[in-house]
Structure formats: structure tokens, C-alpha cells
Design a protein around this nucleic acid. Structure first.
Lengths: 110, 110
DNA sequence: TGCTCATTCAACCAATTAGTTGAACGCATA
DNA sequence: TATGCGTTCAACTAATTGGTTGAATGAGCA
């Protein structure tokens, strides 16, 4: 069960494009830190910090493999964020339904 | 269609508990700024800033009603965030499936 | 007009963030 | 053991954040 504190960290972690990019790559499988860093024009230290943010939000996990750090996706936290958003789904589906109604009336007039 | 820029703003807006609380209230209907501010022990100026962050992320809209500002939820942006998360749904459902398998094997052994 | 209420603006402050550089750590291997 | 590679740590910087206070705007009303 997620606390508000967790959601703060999760949404904050997701608010950075570098971190979202890292997540997307990690979602395709295990990767080392330097492999994850490679597409970004950042220092390894900067990427290491991003990974710490993702780890604090429990979005990734680490596995030590010799001198490498293998990073894996931890989807539970993403699920928490999704469940929070799910609450609002009723509002946008309502709004879309209203829009649909409006368009149908427009067609009647034309 | 959302850009990465939009997602930055949306997830950033969602990372603050005061702003999430405001969204939750706004989701139940139109409210004035001071009504939204009332449950929080913050100045009106602070709440006004939070509303600006939510508005910049396109999560809320304003309607002028005399000297009041009526705030409404704008669910489209939330939908963008949800759609981004939807991509990862396959990973947590996979993980849950794997967990289920594991539990079934455990039951076989006992 | 002048008063009051709702809201925002401007200036400021402390804490946090995202980035850098350079040193340090841990592990493999010659 | 020494060397090199992958990664993190420490210290620093510039920009951003979330909050405050007090003044300003703007609409409704006596």
C-alpha cells in the first residue's frame, strides 16, 4: 500500500525526462549503469544520481554482478501511480462522453 | 498529443501532496480559490502558486465568475499521464503472472 | 465615490535539484 | 601486486521550488 510520501517520490521521479528514458530502457531488460548512461550526454555521476532517485521511489532495483550494477524495473511503484490516476479516470471518461453527446447533437443540426 | 515537456509538467504537478489534494477536491466539482485553500494551513498566495503549477500542466481550468475564480478539473492531462504509465502495465502484469505461477508451484509442493 | 472581499503580484528566503569535477572504492585480471 | 574498468562519493554551483509578507488589482456594493 502506498503512502502519500511514496507518491511524492514516484511522481517526482517520473517528472524528469532522463529518468523516464532510463525507465523505458530498463523495462526492456537488465542493464548496467554505463549502458543506461550511454545515450545521454551526462556524466556517469549525474546518471548515478538519477538512479538513486528512481531507487528511492522504488521504481528500480539493483543486482550486483561482479564489478557491474545490473538495474531492473520494479513495476509495483508504477502500479501505485497508475492506481492513483485511475481514480480520475471516471472524470475524463465522463468528459469524453459529454463531448460525444455534443458532437452527435451537432450532426443532428447539420 | 502530449510532448515530453508536457509530461514533465504533469508529473511534477502531481508530485506535491497539496496539489494532489486540490485536484481531488476539484474533481468533485467547481470551487473557488479560497474554498480550495481552506483545508490547507497555507497562505492564499501559496495556494495561488500551486494553482498556477496545475494550470501550467493543463490539469485545471479557470472560469471567472464575478470576483471569484472558479477552478475546474481538466482531465485530458491526467489522461496523458495515465497513457504514459499504461505502457508499463504489461511489465507489472507479467510480474504478477510470474508471482502467481510461483505460488501455484508452492502449493504443489505442500 | 469609497469600502470590502477575492485573488494575484513582487520581493525575498531556505531548502532542494540537477549538474559538474576530481578523488575514492571495489572487483577482475595480467 | 598493480593496473584498469565500473561506479559512487564529496564538494561545489546555478537554477528551481515552496513558502512567507505586504502591496496591488479588480469586481461588487453601500
Amino acid at each position: 500500500m502506498q503512502t502519500g510520501h511514496d507518491l511524492n517520490r514516484i511522481f517526482h521521479a517520473l517528472s524528469d525526462p532522463t529518468r523516464r528514458e532510463i525507465l523505458r530502457k530498463v523495462a526492456t531488460g537488465e542493464h548496467s549503469v554505463s549502458v543506461l548512461a550511454e545515450p545521454h550526454k551526462l556524466t556517469l555521476a549525474a546518471v548515478s544520481k538519477h538512479l538513486k532517485v528512481l531507487e528511492a521511489a522504488d521504481l528500480i532495483s539493483r543486482r550486483k554482478a561482479g564489478s557491474f550494477q545490473m538495474i531492473t524495473l520494479n513495476p509495483e511503484a508504477l502500479k501505485s501511480a497508475d492506481q492513483w490516476l485511475r481514480y480520475y479516470q471516471q472524470f475524463w471518461s465522463k468528459q469524453l462522453a459529454a463531448l460525444k453527446d455534443l458532437l452527435e447533437k451537432k450532426e443532428d443540426k447539420s
